[in-house]
Nucleic acid binder design. Structure first.
Ligand SMILES: [Zn+2]
Ligand SMILES: [Zn+2]
Ligand SMILES: [Zn+2]
Ligand SMILES: [Zn+2]
Lengths: 151, 151
DNA sequence: TGGTTATTGATAATCATTTACACTTGATAA
DNA sequence: TTATCAAGTGTAAATGATTATCAATAACCA
């Protein structure tokens, strides 16, 4: 945890930004809830527990900054809100998501499944891939089991 | 064109919805601009040229309906608006997109690149895939050329 | 025909996000 | 140390996309 905070601090400094207390509190929430996919509002409420005087606009500004520095990825699952996802350490690409259409849970796939596909896209479409977004919509294991039992 | 309108009409009837003049005008815009990725507002302005009395709310309602019937797919490229994309005829899955980070153009890949990946996800993660969203972010051919010339 | 239901257009309401602005902070240099 | 300055912040207002409301209209049916 402290190690990752330290690293993020360096990434900010490298672009001459500071890790202010508000920014640090926001990053800590992101680290503590790394498996979740929190909206700006969610993050705001959690940061408020640590730093009650923080403003929502600051959280938005911080998330925007972290996005630009590719420390977090902004993602949209089709409900009206943006969600923010910490990049896995050392990952060059955004990880993938499995969204259950029945219960709404979001699973992550960290393994990069797209290497071959990206090569194909670069060769066949002459498109230089820098990053990707891949989300599968379907039925999660748990809901499949529930459905089977119901039959 | 008329053939596809006819088919969409049947899909609506199958769910006991009508193809009203407003809905038809909206569908016609989507067909005419199939390669584009229009926002609700864009579509509204184009539909108004054919049917000036139409209201924005009706366009939203129609797009929502067409989404539910999987006649269009709603997609979000990270700017603040939803965009609406006609499903290719007979396609089981949403097609893929190449978004240029420099000029913003959006190219389409209709060929399904994910068959192998989906098999892997179903086997290894026990997740039953129903649909997917895949977008690549990078540099399009044209911008690559421009960048090379500039050097 | 009269009665019922679906659909529409205009408008207001909602909700996420951004902006404006005055205030604070922390660093720097006289 | 103190004046100066830019970066960062909190509050509140503004914006912009989408949704809800509601009265009017159109399609359908007994
Ligand atoms: Zn589920
Ligand atoms: Zn994730
Ligand atoms: Zn380009
Ligand atoms: Zn498309």
């Amino acid at each position: 945890m402290e190690h990752r905070i330290e690293r993020i601090k360096k990434q900010l400094h490298a672009e001459s930004y500071k890790l202010t207390p508000q920014r640090e509190a926001t990053v800590r929430v992101l680290l503590e809830r790394e498996e979740d996919h929190l909206s700006a509002e969610d993050i705001y409420l959690l940061v408020k527990e640590k730093a009650p005087e923080i403003g929502l606009a600051t959280v938005y500004r911080t998330l925007e900054l972290l996005s630009e520095l590719k420390i977090v990825d902004k993602i949209n699952f089709g409900d009206g809100v943006s969600r923010y996802d910490l990049r896995k350490e050392g990952a060059a690409h955004f990880h993938h998501h499995l969204v259950c259409m029945e219960c709404g849970t979001v699973e992550e796939i960290v393994e990069d499944l797209l290497e071959d596909v990206e090569k194909k896209v670069e060769n066949q479409w002459q498109f230089q891939v820098k990053d990707h977004r891949l989300t599968f919509h379907g039925i999660c294991r748990k809901c499949q089991q529930n459905n089977n039992e119901a039959n």
